[in-house]
């Protein structure tokens, strides 16, 4: 197992009487993309900003790169890169000027040109920040987060509010960071994003981690496995499927068959060859983080617009 770069033990954060983070413990390993997935108000920002030394914990122990957040903030600050939630920088400076500016603020910095290339912003380098689209702004934010050549990069909701195309472009940047050997801590409320990008992740709700592992392991543990869905199946089809001995469930007009092993699908297809069995289509669906979240909390994660994320 590779080296641990962040260690959090029993972290608690209260705002007055309200407990925003309720005793979480986890660790982040070198070179991985670690995500905290959860709905608005789950406590994601509070958690990462404590690791970034921007907020003080009420209790608990947090070590970043071996440094204690209570006493060694300067050591930490020099070695981490941060894209804050709702990132913003100087509107009336160009992309290049903004990166240059933050380069000076740190003692060591990588050349601006290298950063522009890294986030693919070279042709926008002379545009004012205010004239960029949301996705480009986030990429500027990532470039600035990389300016001090940090070992760890925090990205707090880097894709919130972006359209799907811009979101995917940010994903590519995250994958690049991983390829460069950076450790990335990402927060998001997009299930798919967490599933695609993370090596390991925590699902956070109400200040607690309700699941914490690799996406695959979480889905395996809390999901329903794989389902075969036969849409608009007639009673004959239902009858034949039940006879296979597989676990079968009628759901509205459909039939859901639980895939116990690789041979299950073969059995389904075989019995449905009967000329009296009618149905519209057969689909196979693996359970997702979405289903896990639904199962664990009884709710769906909603995105900003209120639509299902």
């Amino acid at each position: 197992m590779s080296e641990t770069v962040i260690e959090v033990k029993n972290l608690i954060k209260n705002y007055g009487d309200f407990r925003a983070v309720d005793g979480i413990s986890f660790e982040v390993r070198k070179g991985e993309v670690f995500s905290i997935l959860g709905p608005n108000g789950a406590g994601k920002t509070t958690t990462v900003e404590i690791m970034e030394c921007l907020r003080k914990p009420s209790s608990g122990e947090v070590k970043v790169l071996g440094f204690d957040i209570a006493h060694q903030q300067n050591d930490i600050r020099k070695r981490v890169g941060i894209l804050p939630q709702d990132f913003n920088t100087y509107d009336l400076l160009t992309v290049k000027e903004n990166i240059d500016y933050f380069g000076v603020m740190f003692d060591r910095s990588i050349p601006t040109q290298e950063l522009l290339d890294a986030v693919n912003l070279n042709d926008k380098k002379d545009e004012y920040f205010k004239n960029l689209s949301g996705g480009l702004k986030q990429r500027v934010g990532v470039a600035i987060a990389m300016v001090n050549d940090p070992d760890i990069i925090f990205l707090d909701e880097p894709t919130t509010g972006l359209d799907p195309k811009a979101r995917r472009e940010v994903w590519e940047v995250v994958k690049d960071l991983k390829r460069k050997g950076k450790t990335v801590i990402l927060t998001t409320h997009y299930m798919e994003e967490a599933e695609v990008l993370s090596d390991r992740l925590a699902i956070m709700n109400g200040g607690r981690f309700i699941a914490y592992d690799t996406p695959r392991a979480i889905i395996k543990e809390h999901g329903y496995g794989t389902l075969c869905i036969i849409r608009s199946a007639n009673d004959k089809a239902m009858q034949l499927l039940t006879a296979t001995g597989l676990s079968v469930k009628r759901k509205d007009g459909d039939v859901e068959v639980h895939m116990d092993d690789k041979s299950s699908l073969h059995k389904v297809v075989e019995v449905l060859q009967d000329p009296d069995a009618y149905y519209d289509e057969i689909t196979v669906k693996r359970s997702s983080l979405e289903d896990v979240f639904l199962k664990l909390t009884g709710k769906r994660i909603e995105d900003d617009t209120g639509a299902k994320a």
Binding site: E52, R77, P84, F87, Y90, M105, I144
Partner: peptide, 13 residues
Amino acid sequence: ATGIFRKLSTTPF
């Protein structure tokens, strides 16, 4: 309000 201070506070400035 716009978060520029938050970003600045992540630097040694």
